[in-house]
């Protein structure tokens, strides 16, 4: 049971990581002059959309968290709306945090906001897919020893990795190398992306490695 689930997790994660690689390569075939560095904002949009679509589909197909009770259509719609609001709020929150970290307040708002959207895609969207708009569950998962399935473990790892990646991505900004990738927010968004991909790959491996220690309590 656990092995099979782990395999499903690995497949899903590899799919996500692969899709990010594809977002960097495929659009160049359709769009003239597309490159991750040159037309970074376009790439940010494409990447966010792809990752979110993929995540939502995977969530619907694999159903890692079996919905506890059958719910009516209106309930579903309200859940969906709540999810949208939560996602938007998380974008705003990330934007605010990035500005607090020193991003310019007025100029390059688009860049900052798209970076915030990317971060939200890597973190909040996954939480929404897995846990739904349930803050209590979020807090449980992100507290110590709070994960109750390998999916939640993977969620913990990828989220942490993406945020850490974005954090480390800010390091090269002050260097005076004058490279194109030092322009705001390229290094940060690339950092977050690499962090996310690393998280996706690390998570199944880590769970596999520690499968003896991981004992999930039934809810």
């Amino acid at each position: 049971m656990k092995e099979a689930e782990l395999r499903r997790l690995l497949a899903a994660n590899l799919l996500c990581a692969g899709s990010i690689v594809l977002t960097a390569l495929v659009p160049a075939l359709f769009l003239d002059g597309f490159s991750v560095l040159g037309t970074h904002l376009t790439w940010l949009c494409i990447c966010s959309v792809c990752v979110s679509v993929l995540n939502v589909t995977l969530c619907l197909i694999l159903k890692p968290s079996p919905s506890s009770k059958r719910s009516s259509l209106s309930n579903k719609i309200s859940r969906f709306l709540k999810c949208c609001i939560y996602f938007f709020m998380s974008c705003i929150l990330f934007h605010a945090i990035i500005v607090l970290y020193g991003a310019p307040l007025i100029e390059s708002v688009t860049e900052t906001f798209l970076f915030a959207v990317l971060l939200s895609t890597f973190t909040t969207l996954q939480c929404l897919c897995l846990l739904g708009p349930n803050i209590q569950a979020w807090i449980r998962v992100f507290s110590r020893n709070g994960a109750m399935s390998i999916w939640e473990n993977s969620l913990q790892i990828t989220t942490t990795c993406s945020i850490l990646g974005g954090w480390f991505g800010a390091f090269p900004i002050p260097l005076d190398w004058d490279r194109p990738w030092q322009v705001w927010p390229i290094s940060c968004s690339l950092g977050a992306t690499f962090g996310y991909m690393a998280g996706l790959i690390i998570a199944p491996l880590w769970i596999h490695w520690n499968r003896k220690q991981l004992t999930y309590k039934s809810r």
Binding site: I173, P174, W177
Partner: peptide, 22 residues
């Protein structure tokens, strides 16, 4: 060890105290 980081050392500290606050 890096001259740019010395020139922009304030960024290091702002970054650190921001993270500390979070």
């Amino acid at each position: 060890g890096a001259s740019s980081f010395i020139e922009e050392e304030h960024q290091t500290w702002y970054f650190l105290i921001n993270t500390l606050c979070l």
